[in-house]
Design a protein around this nucleic acid. Structure first.
Lengths: 350, 350
DNA sequence: CCGGTTTAGAAAACCAGTTTACCATGACCA
DNA sequence: TGGTCATGGTAAACTGGTTTTCTAAACCGG
């Protein structure tokens, strides 16, 4: 007898029905709607359940109710990528707070077998939130086909897809104007810039921001092809920020300011500059995007765009729960205010 | 007609069976074990499924398989508490990486109706990981009753419960010795110290660490009742760290060193000291525990105990998956090495 | 050409709840 | 005394898959 409990079966609602002398229905009501049965019956059933340690099986219950009591957060890449970014943690915190309030859990959905689509197919959630996804039509099509409600954060606006964003183009415009007004003309831009190829099928928030940068540059007679504008693709990690900086250090003509699309990249860049004894902002200015908490404490503190991640998460989750419960939706496209935060990392050189 | 699709029912395996001319069984095999049916049948079925956009319902599938394809992370308190602590994020990252590798999702389980027990009852997961929970017997009893595999991180060791820890007592001893060797005798200790009341029913990791502190203190002829030792209860948040500092500022005899049980608390304290123009470490030393990434970047950098959160998460998750799959368990109590990290925040005053 | 094995597929059981539809019983009332 | 209604409870249907068991046909060697 290798396992003395091998015969032991899980206790089910049937057992409680048998033990208490009532029906399955009665047991179900005892747990879910006591008013449907007499107080005596309810007490008896709960008593029996208590004694044998029974509680309705969550899996069966969810199946029967056709609900998971959980919403998902789709990780577009490897978990390392998202979790190392404090901005995303802020977003997650906001989402989590709403989940908690609504008695739901929050399911983090990493790519399955390296595939986001596969993960979405199998996602056991009542709805989900994406962050930073461009127009990955395969994913969205699948979600629509599965009739799974979803909300995008930092996705591409102006579609039928419910979204939460700041006005990214305007924010990008504002910060680039600030940079230009500070006298910078040799400017490096770091972001996921493969989108630059004018392939309109691959929209993304980075491109939206780029449009804002361009608008500002044009007011100063510059554009992305100007010889003093350096563009470099760079994912949102601290390492990529370091890498970006090292590239720029070796550039023939070093830029006077690095405009990044993420604070974490900006901080990575600053760390690398420091290691090479390039002073920020005296030798080179750096600006970010997001305003993560660290940006205020960091030395030098970071000039950046404040977008409230927690608030975005909260709003997205609230919208998602509205969609799930088919409540009347007031507004499917939520825009959160942003603020330009001027701090130490941008120096006026004019 | 308010909803033109109101009649529309979800497509099920039955529909595909009917449309393809095969049985439910065949359809199931087509998706899960194509070798059980002919290539032709499989192709036909998948073709039909593709056309109508069918994919097995995850909820029903999980129910049938009696598996959630997900493990849980139990948030012992409000989500704000955990998510604001980078150490816990490190742990989560480690857990998440293993989930991703195993094709599972990671479910964050906040308290349900303010109750952790209730949350555990309803948790739709195959197993779960707790962090920083003391001997909350109600929760553990419930888990055992539900036969839900689980692993504790930073829990109380020396029980039958699978656990992942560093040697907390030894680590606490080591860092306190370092503090004492640096000449400090007026020492404040910040942690969840309600456990000090000798109520052995309420064990916790904080108490384990306290034992290590006491051991070191005794070697210098001190103990927790010595007039120069100040104890103050303090949860693991940056605000509590600030609060701790403000308390100490008003103490009759200010300590020369603050020993905290968490870097986040240490950083909070340093921020508050700074605001009151108390220099760290010149006016007062501070040491932490965890060695979160910020501790290295912070000014002053933090003397602390390095415990690899990500590694702990990874090990715990691996252990949990072993438990779930009933694999032979090599070791149910994993101890991870720690290191004392000497940096700027502790000053030698002897 | 016969008996045994393999293969392809189908029927039915199973997972563990919730919910609908219905049936007693007794009270109340005309 | 018969009709209506409220109460308390039950049987059966339903959620949508997977898996076991079984059968018919194909295959195969002697």
């Amino acid at each position: 007898m290798p396992d003395e409990h091998s015969k032991e079966k899980r206790i089910t609602i049937k057992d409680i029905a048998r033990l208490s002398g009532y029906s399955k229905t009665a047991v179900s009501f005892a747990f879910n709607d006591p008013s449907r049965i007499s107080a005596k019956a309810c007490a008896t059933i709960l008593q029996v359940a208590q004694e044998v340690g029974y509680y309705p099986n969550p899996l069966a219950r969810n199946f029967s109710l056709q609900s998971h009591q959980s919403i998902g957060f789709l990780l577009p890449q490897d978990i390392n990528y998202s979790f190392r970014n404090p901005y995303i943690m802020e977003v997650l915190l906001g989402i989590g707070a709403v989940c908690q309030k609504n008695g739901n859990t929050l399911t983090l959905i990493p790519p399955l077998h390296e595939s986001v689509v596969e993960a979405v197919r199998c996602a056991a959630v009542d709805g989900l939130i994406t962050q930073g996804m461009g127009t990955e039509m395969e994913v969205f099509d699948l979600l629509l086909k599965r009739k799974l409600p979803f909300v995008t954060i930092d996705g591409v606006p102006s579609t039928q897809i419910p979204s939460v964003n700041v006005n990214d183009e305007q924010a990008a415009y504002d910060i680039m104007r600030l940079v230009l007004a500070a006298g910078h003309r040799r400017i490096a831009i770091g972001g996921l810039l493969e989108v630059i190829e004018e392939d309109s099928a691959s929209q993304s928030i980075q491109r939206t921001r780029l449009a804002g940068y361009v608008k500002a540059l044009q007011e100063y007679g510059l554009n992305l092809s100007s010889p003093t504008i350096i563009m470099h693709t760079c994912a949102c990690t601290i390492e990529e920020g370091r890498h970006l900086a090292s590239i720029l250090l070796n550039a023939k003509q070093r830029p006077t300011c690095v405009v990044t699309m993420s604070d974490i990249v900006a901080i990575g860049a600053i760390l690398a500059f420091k290691e090479h004894h390039i002073a920020v902002p005296d030798d080179i200015s750096v600006v970010g995007f997001d305003n993560i908490p660290e940006s205020a404490y960091h030395r030098p503190s970071l000039t950046t765009v404040d977008q409230p991640g927690e608030e975005k998460g909260r709003q997205a989750a609230q919208l998602l729960f509205s969609l799930i419960s088919k409540k009347e939706i007031v507004e499917r496209h939520i825009q959160i205010p942003y603020r330009i935060i001027e701090r130490e990392s941008l120096k006026n050189i004019s």
